[in-house]
């Protein structure tokens, strides 16, 4: 039995999501290989080879793979599929783009956003914005899964898998990359940060959001998140959105400021280890999931919190 894990990376560094999906693969059992598809993937492949328990790392290089075009990734993986019983991809926007294309080409179901491996053919995943957990048993010979990284611990290091390059099928003819605008930030990445500070609609404007949320995040060394309401209102960019339709995060500490706690937001952060909520409405649903709630207007509470952190040596 063999499992292929498709690595998450940006052509420069390997993302921790890959280690987490390797853990899911190990829960299934069998040999685990990691595919690194992109451009100049040597350093990324070398990192992947160090993940404990990986049999081998496959590398595939082309401009289209580097651009992450779904057609290119799917054609490559379908070509490799005969050697594998399972194909696992992190449920990132990138993985969600190409994985169903692989499943359909193989004429099998995809099980999306897997949070638990129950057995080799049975998996649990959230449905209805996380308001229900569905456990399904697959009858397909090959199983294609996207895996929610925050539901699994990262596999350790210490491996020394061999690295093999594989041939790349012809480039897709009908899809062309135009450009990509990735926001560069000195802050940790939202999906991987140990602390996340999020702001909601109560901020009232983009200027206020920047003035209140960002300094607090910087003081804590945290990533910045936002509720859908804040993103829709234009207070924060779309990639800040935490929630069922945005990013699912599970940091050590999640600080929600001026966020009421709509179901769709809770679905994206309720697996955080410790949740703090600051909201002036004592009945806000966010308090039902918060470990520590402070009923206060953020305008007064956040500066006080900054001072208290300074006093505590932060």
């Amino acid at each position: 039995m063999a499992v292929l894990v498709i690595a998450d990376h940006d052509n420069a560094t390997l993302k921790d999501n890959t280690h987490k999906v390797v853990t899911a693969a190990q829960a299934i059992g069998g040999d685990v290989d990691v595919l690194v598809a992109g451009t100049n993937v040597g350093p990324v492949a070398a990192e992947a080879a160090k993940i404990a328990g990986v049999r081998k790392v496959l590398t595939a290089e082309s401009p289209e793979l580097g651009q992450g075009l779904a057609e290119a990734v799917a054609d490559l993986v379908v070509g490799l599929a005969s050697g594998y019983d399972y194909i696992l991809t992190p449920a990132t926007s990138q993985g969600k783009n190409f994985s169903p294309r692989i499943a359909a080409k193989l004429d099998v179901a995809q099980i999306s956003d897997v949070t638990e491996v129950v057995s080799g053919d049975t998996f649990t995943h959230p449905i209805y914005a996380g308001n229900a957990m569905e456990t399904v048993q697959s009858a397909d010979a090959k199983k294609v899964l996207t895996v929610r990284p925050t539901a699994f611990k990262a596999a350790g290091e210490g491996g020394s898998a061999k690295i093999e390059s594989v041939s790349v099928p012809a480039a897709p003819a009908k899809t062309h990359f135009v450009d990509q605008k990735i926001v560069k930030s000195a802050r940790p990445e939202l999906g991987a940060a140990k602390i996340v500070v999020s702001g909601g609609r109560a901020m009232g404007s983009a200027e206020e959001f920047q003035k209140v949320i960002e300094p607090l995040a910087d003081k804590l060394g945290a990533a910045v998140g936002a509720s859908r309401a804040a993103v829709d209102a234009g207070y924060a960019p779309n990639d800040y959105q935490v929630g069922q339709t945005g990013k699912v995060v599970a940091p050590e500490l999640y600080v929600a400021i001026g966020i009421s706690g709509a179901i769709q937001h809770l679905a994206g952060m309720k697996d955080s280890k410790v949740i703090v909520a600051i909201n002036k409405d004592p009945d806000a649903p966010i308090f039902q999931v918060a470990d520590y709630g402070l009923v206060a207007d953020y305008k007064a509470a956040v500066p006080e919190l900054m001072d208290a952190l300074t006093a505590a040596g932060k």
């Binding site: 992450g68 075009l69 926007s93 009908k174 899809t175 062309h176 990735i182 926001v183 990445e189 779309n238």
Partner: peptide, 11 residues
């Protein structure tokens, strides 16, 4: 909409 920003493609 992609992780961390926006990508434009032509199909």
């Amino acid at each position: 909409e992609v992780d961390g920003g926006l990508q434009t493609i032509e199909v």
